[in-house]
Computed example of a mutant assay.
Amino acid sequence: MTETEVYTAEDLSLGHFLYALMSAFPLFFLPVFFSLLINLSQTNIATHSLLSSHLRWQRNSITGLVTLLLIGYFIPLLWLSIPIFLAALTWFSYRIFKGWLGLNDSVNMY
């Protein structure tokens, strides 16, 4: 490392807060939408930063969850829509778990 190189620490508390809001979805679904609104309002984050990759991961997780829930809702067969709901919630839980662990380990999410 030369004397001119400067390393800056990135504040990841926003990412932790948004993962905490997302993880509250079994109790109330409203925190997920608050998380998405806060996520979309973050326009001053550097494009290729660690926090940016996690914000993108969270957005994709929430939109995927909403898409799967809508598919399950519009399928008229109850025996088919319930497994889709369960798969959506399991997949979303996996995305929260993997993303939050990745944030703790400072790993970019793709």
Rank of each mutant, 00 (worst) to 15 (best):
Met1Ile: 15
Met1His: 14
Thr2Gly: 09
Glu3Arg: 05
Glu3Leu: 10
Thr4Met: 13
Thr4Cys: 10
Glu5Asp: 15
Val6Met: 11
Tyr7Pro: 01
Thr8Gln: 09
Thr8Lys: 05
Thr8Ala: 06
Ala9Gly: 07
Ala9Ile: 07
Glu10Val: 10
Asp11Ile: 07
Asp11Arg: 11
Leu12Asn: 01
Leu12Gln: 02
Ser13Thr: 06
Leu14Val: 11
Phe17Glu: 08
Phe17Leu: 09
Leu18Lys: 02
Tyr19Thr: 01
Ala20Trp: 00
Ala20Met: 06
Leu21Tyr: 10
Ser23Asp: 10
Ser23Glu: 08
Ser23Leu: 10
Phe25Met: 12
Pro26Val: 03
Leu27His: 11
Leu27Val: 09
Phe28Lys: 14
Phe28Thr: 12
Phe28Gly: 10
Phe28His: 12
Phe29Lys: 15
Leu30Phe: 11
Leu30Pro: 02
Leu30Ile: 15
Pro31Ala: 14
Pro31Tyr: 13
Val32Trp: 14
Val32Asp: 09
Phe34His: 07
Ser35Val: 08
Leu36Trp: 03
Leu37Ser: 06
Asn39Thr: 10
Asn39Ile: 07
Leu40Lys: 03
Leu40Cys: 01
Leu40Met: 08
Thr43Met: 04
Thr43Arg: 05
Asn44Val: 05
Asn44Tyr: 13
Ile45Lys: 03
Ile45Met: 04
Ala46Leu: 13
Ala46Met: 12
His48Phe: 15
Ser49Met: 05
Leu50Val: 12
Leu50Asn: 09
Leu51Asn: 03
Ser53Pro: 03
Leu55Cys: 00
Leu55His: 07
Arg56Trp: 11
Trp57Tyr: 15
Trp57Ser: 02
Gln58Tyr: 00
Gln58Thr: 05
Gln58Trp: 00
Arg59Gln: 05
Asn60Cys: 09
Asn60His: 12
Ser61Ala: 15
Ser61Asp: 08
Ser61Ile: 14
Ser61Arg: 03
Ser61Thr: 14
Ile62Tyr: 07
Ile62Leu: 10
Ile62Pro: 03
Thr63Phe: 04
Leu65Arg: 14
Val66Trp: 15
Leu68Trp: 15
Leu68Lys: 10
Leu68Gln: 11
Leu68Ala: 11
Leu69Asn: 05
Ile71Leu: 11
Ile71Lys: 04
Ile71Pro: 06
Gly72Gln: 01
Tyr73Met: 08
Phe74Gly: 00
Ile75Pro: 01
Ile75Asn: 04
Leu77Arg: 13
Leu80Cys: 13
Ser81Leu: 09
Ser81Phe: 09
Ile82Phe: 12
Pro83Phe: 14
Ile84Cys: 01
Phe85Leu: 05
Phe85Arg: 08
Ala87Tyr: 07
Ala87Pro: 04
Ala88Gln: 01
Leu89Pro: 04
Leu89Ser: 06
Thr90Asp: 07
Trp91Tyr: 05
Trp91Leu: 12
Phe92Ile: 08
Tyr94Asp: 06
Arg95Phe: 12
Arg95Gln: 05
Ile96Met: 05
Phe97Pro: 04
Phe97Trp: 12
Lys98Thr: 12
Gly99Leu: 06
Trp100His: 09
Trp100Thr: 02
Leu101Ala: 08
Leu101Arg: 13
Leu101Thr: 06
Gly102Asp: 01
Gly102His: 07
Leu103Ser: 03
Leu103Gly: 00
Asp105Arg: 11
Asp105Ala: 09
Asp105Pro: 03
Ser106Gln: 11
Ser106Cys: 09
Val107Arg: 08
Val107Ala: 13
Asn108Glu: 15
Asn108Val: 15
Met109Ala: 13
Tyr110Lys: 11
Tyr110Ser: 11
Tyr110Ile: 09
